[in-house]
Every structure is written in structure tokens, then in C-alpha cells.
Design a protein around this nucleic acid. Structure first.
Lengths: 147, 147
DNA sequence: CAAAGTTGATAACCACAATTATCAACTTTG
DNA sequence: CAAAGTTGATAATTGTGGTTATCAACTTTG
């Protein structure tokens, strides 16, 4: 993973221009929990190259694959985060993300779990499976170990 | 599983009436691969109680959860069928379902695989996870074995 | 310090997914 | 064999999800 791809360098208007969409749309995606842009101390958003690619992927899902935003959220919620971060049984019992079926895990706070101190934006659950097409591959890998 | 719930007894118009939707809608769901009604020799559809519950679940996903039909299909396609039916590595290599990300496995024919001879309508991959809310539970169970 | 850009929030717009109506040909029912 | 129901296919309808415009208040930039 190239560190430069993760570097937050684009303002929201620049990001919108590069993506060919409007600024409000980017904010909606964030509000829905599809993306987590970096924020300056002043609360202004900054987007990295990886963020842009993530949005492009979301747009393909919406426009080409005709999957609704809520559908994407439901799909994200199926990522077995508990396995990726290897959280304990006790953590799972108290973790909202573990039991949710319509919100990605990174839209939750995770009090009293291993994720409590982690930044979701940097967590592999968020960053590794941003490309829509890779979630099933993750399942193939993880599930494969079981048999 | 009560056998009577699986018994195909309702005609399409009866099923539509019971569900409060139109006949064409039921056909659309079938065409999209969301449901597999039983068919008489004469090609007429018959629906079981389980079929109706499956449709109710689909309707909740569409109307309440706001997940599009293509979104539901994408979610279904994430069910780790290869693990449920325990198919071989060779099977996976040639199975369209294993590599699909937008069509449920039961919308494929499965030549030269363990599923070749199985009826998808009766396969647990199709029947057990019809209730939208159970797919993540399946993942929890299967993935759990891995750790 | 003025111009340009950002913030969150609300409201307006509209493309189109989801549903239904309609059709002729065919099957089932009594 | 007539009436009612089904078939697949096509076309029409409509509700609304996704997008954008607009706003006043605030921040950054040069």
C-alpha cells in the first residue's frame, strides 16, 4: 500500500471536481457512512487518492450495478470485522457492529472492545474492502480456513 | 422444518392476494432470481407457505430497509454456498456461482459440480437463508470455526 | 480585510426502479 | 365448451432515492 495514496490532500471541491460530482453528494455519502474523509483540526474535509477510488467504486455500485445506498451499507455490514480484527467473545457480546445488519461497523463507536482505541478510517476493515468486488474474496479466504 | 410449510399449494393469484401485491410483481421477483416457486408439469407456478414468507422478507428489504432488488441479489451472492454444500476446489474453479458478485448461486446452472444434480429450490443455500436477517448469522457460525 | 471556499441543514428536482396494466395464446376447472 | 386463470412479453404508471441548489455562518487564503 503506497503511503501517498493514503495522504489526504484534496479539498472537498477538488475531490468533487475530480470525481465529476457535486460537493453535497460527497457529504451525503459521508453522512450515510460510506466514506470517512480525513478532517483537519478546523473540521474541514480532506480526501486522499484512496478515498477518491473508494467513491468511484461506490458510484459504480449505484449507477452501474443499481445497488441502492442502503444496499451498499447492508453489504458492508456483512464484512466479518470480528474476524479481521480478531475481537474476543466478550467484545462481540457488547459490540453494536457485530449485531448490525444495515450499518457498516465503522459507523459505530466501539466502547469496551478492541476497536475502542482504533481509528476506523485506518482500520483494515474499512480500508481493505472498499473495492466492492473484494468482499466475497475476503469471505472465500476466511471461510476457507474453516474446512 | 415443517413439511407442510414447504408444500406448494397456492396458485400465483392466491399468493399475490395473500401478499397484497400483483401477479406481475411475483413474476418479476422470480425473473430476478429472488424466488424459485414450484412449477407443475404444465409450467404453472405454485407457492408454499415458506415461499410466501420469503417474499414478505424481500418486500421488507425493499420497502422498509430500502434495499434495491439488485442490492438484495448482491447480498444473496455473498452467501458462502461453497462452504454450505462443501464443494471441492475443482468445483469452485468451474462454478459460475462461486465467482459471481451480483447473482445468487441458485440462478446458475452448475455443470460439473456437486450442485449439478441438486435442485436449488430444495438446497439449504436457497431455503435456509431466505430470511434476510440470517445471512450474517451464517457468516458468524462459519467464520467462527476458522479462529 | 476582502475573496474564495467550507460548514451543516433544508428544500427542490428528476431520473428511473418498482409496480402494475394490458395483451394474445394457452391451460385448467366444473 | 364456456368461464376463469395462467403464460410470457411489452408498455404505461408512479413513488421516491439520489442528486443538486441554496442558505447563513464560519474559515481559510493571499
Amino acid at each position: 500500500m503506497d503511503i501517498s495514496k493514503e495522504e489526504p490532500i484534496y479539498s472537498i471541491s477538488t475531490a468533487a471536481k475530480l470525481l465529476g460530482i457535486s460537493v453535497p453528494t460527497l457529504r451525503v455519502y459521508e453522512k450515510e457512512g460510506l466514506i470517512i474523509p480525513h478532517k483537519k483540526e478546523s473540521n474541514q474535509r480532506l480526501y486522499s487518492q484512496a478515498d477518491l477510488e473508494r467513491v468511484e467504486c461506490i458510484r459504480r455500485a449505484i449507477n452501474e450495478k443499481k445497488i441502492s445506498v442502503n444496499g451498499i451499507k447492508a453489504i458492508y455490514s456483512l464484512i466479518p470485522c470480528w474476524e479481521v480484527v480478531n475481537c474476543s467473545q466478550e467484545d462481540r457480546a457488547v459490540c453494536g457492529a457485530y449485531n448490525s445488519e444495515d450499518q457498516p461497523c465503522w459507523t459505530f463507536t466501539h466502547p469496551n472492545t478492541i476497536c475502542e482505541s482504533k481509528s476506523c478510517r485506518e482500520c483494515e476493515v474499512y480500508s481493505d474492502y472498499s473495492n466492492c468486488g473484494t468482499i466475497k474474496n475476503l469471505l472465500k479466504n476466511i471461510v476457507g480456513k474453516a474446512s
